[in-house]
């Protein structure tokens, strides 16, 4: 079990100081929230002394403070515990060879869904994701993908009255 390793707060995946990136993200988010708040106009109002600005300022400050504290924490050797799960094996580092094609399939769907329609883009999304995750049974994977896309298309159309884009197959479906 990997639990002994993580109990000390130092997970197998999570070495190095890449967590500083999270601190940077928090800092940027805080700065953006504060900057955005600064351009809000506060109309004088007796009944609404809180105004639209108060909460953004609190939240932006909270983000900045956590950014600084997290940076200090990481520099002192603190590490966040990577999440575990049933299918998660933290003994190897993040496998970008799986994640990037997966993200690629996702982006492809965003680009195609309007033009080519859900049946085409959804099939590619499912098939591409299965491929990225290691499925190599091309015929079976393809059949499952097309079936899923078609079933959801018609299921949404008839069952939920939601018309997903038909795209290039507009006349056929």
């Amino acid at each position: 079990m990997t639990q002994q390793a993580t109990a000390a707060g130092k997970p197998a995946a999570g070495t190095g100081r890449s967590e500083l990136g999270i601190a940077a993200l928090l800092g940027v988010a805080g700065a953006v929230v504060l900057w955005d708040a600064s351009r809000l106009v506060v109309p004088y109002s007796v009944s609404d002394p809180v105004g639209p600005k108060t909460l953004p300022i609190i939240i932006g400050s909270l983000l900045l403070v956590t950014a600084v504290m997290l940076a200090v924490n990481v520099l002192r050797g603190g590490r966040g515990q990577a999440e575990e799960g049933e299918d998660v094996d933290l003994s190897h580092p993040s496998d970008w060879k799986t994640v990037l094609p997966l993200a690629g399939a996702f982006v492809l769907n965003i680009l195609l869904i309007g033009v080519a329609g859900w049946v085409v883009s959804g099939t590619l999304l499912f098939w591409g994701s299965v491929w990225a995750l290691g499925g190599r049974n091309y015929v079976r994977d393809g059949v499952v993908s097309v079936t899923m896309a078609l079933l959801t298309f018609y299921g949404f159309y008839f069952g939920l009255d939601i018309k997903l884009p038909a795209g290039i197959l507009a006349g056929i479906l």
């Binding site: 999440e83 799960g85 998660v88 094996d89 496998d95 799986t98 994640v99 997966l102 990225a132 995750l133």
Partner: peptide, 10 residues
């Protein structure tokens, strides 16, 4: 979650 598990698939 899906991306996270994909990155560390057992």
């Amino acid at each position: 979650e899906a991306f996270w598990i994909a990155a560390h698939l057992r």
